[in-house]
Amino acid sequence: MWRKLLSGCGVLKQQLCRRYSTATATSAVNSMLLRSLKEHYLQVSKMIPPPKVSPPSPFTVVKGALDGDGTGPVLKRSYGDDDEEIILSVMRMDNIIPGGDGDGYDSNQLFLHVVVSKPAEKESLLFLCALFPDALGIHSVAIRPSGEAFSSSALRSSALRFTGPRFQELDEGMKDAFHSYIEERGVGDSLFPFLQAWLYVKDHRNLVRWFKLVGSFVKETKSV
C-alpha cells in the first residue's frame, strides 16, 4: 500500500514539476514578447507624421474617418443644382491586389472608390479608379444601390462584380466624357497629396492600436 502511495506521489510530483516548468516557460515567453511589443510601440509612437495637408476645397473630411481599422468614406462634397453627393474612399492598390509591387503596381498608386449619388435616385454611379501623383485613371463605371457599405470587403467585391463594359473598350469620346464628368466634380490628381498623407496617418494609428491590443491580450493571458 505504502509503495503504491509513494509511487502515486512520485507521479504527482512529476506532474506538478512539469506544470510548474511549463508555467515558468510561458511566463518567460510572455515577458519577452511584451518587452518587444513595448519597444516597437514606443518606436512607432515617436514616428513623425507628414505635414498636415488639407483636402482640396470644397471637399471635407468625413467625421470619424480615421477611427477603426476598416475602410470607409474619407471625403465628401455636394455638387450642382441636383444636390449630388460625391463620396470618396481610398486604399493602397497593393492592399487590393496582394504582392502589388511584384505585379508591377507602383507603391504610389492608390485605389479610389468614388460614389456619385442623387437624393431622388435609388442607385448611384460607382467609379473605380487608380490615382497617381500626376494622373487619375478610370478602371470601371457601374451602377450600384445607393448607400452600399464602404468596407474593405465591399471594395474587393466591387472590383470582382460586373461593372459594365470594360472601360478600356469604350470609344475614346465616351472615355474622355467620363473623365470630364468626375473631374468636373473635383475628382483628380489634386486629391493625391491629401489622400496619401491621410493613409499614412491611418496606417500609423492602426499600427499603434495593433501593438496596444496584442500587448493587452498577452498581458491578460492566464496560465492554465
Rank of each mutant, 00 (worst) to 15 (best):
W2I: 13
R3D: 07
G10M: 04
L12R: 11
L12Y: 13
L12W: 12
Q15V: 05
L16M: 01
C17P: 06
Y20F: 05
Y20H: 07
T22P: 00
T24W: 09
V29W: 02
S31C: 07
S31K: 06
M32V: 09
L37R: 06
K38I: 03
K38Y: 05
H40N: 13
L42W: 11
P49C: 07
P50L: 07
V53L: 01
S54K: 03
P55M: 07
P58S: 11
F59D: 04
T60E: 11
G64P: 02
A65Y: 15
A65S: 15
A65I: 07
T71G: 03
P73W: 06
G80S: 06
D83M: 02
I86P: 03
I87L: 14
M91F: 13
R92T: 04
D94K: 14
N95S: 14
P98R: 01
G100L: 01
G100C: 07
Q109A: 14
L110M: 11
F111H: 02
V115I: 09
S117P: 05
A120K: 02
K122C: 01
S124R: 05
L125W: 01
L128D: 06
C129F: 13
S140M: 03
V141P: 02
V141A: 00
E148N: 11
A149P: 05
S157I: 01
F162I: 04
T163A: 10
P165M: 14
F167M: 03
Q168H: 04
G173W: 03
D176I: 09
F178H: 10
F178M: 11
S180C: 08
I182P: 01
E183W: 02
G186T: 04
L199Q: 15
H204Q: 15
N206H: 14
L207C: 04
V208E: 14
V208P: 12
S216T: 14
S216E: 12
S216F: 13
F217A: 09
E220V: 07
S223W: 00
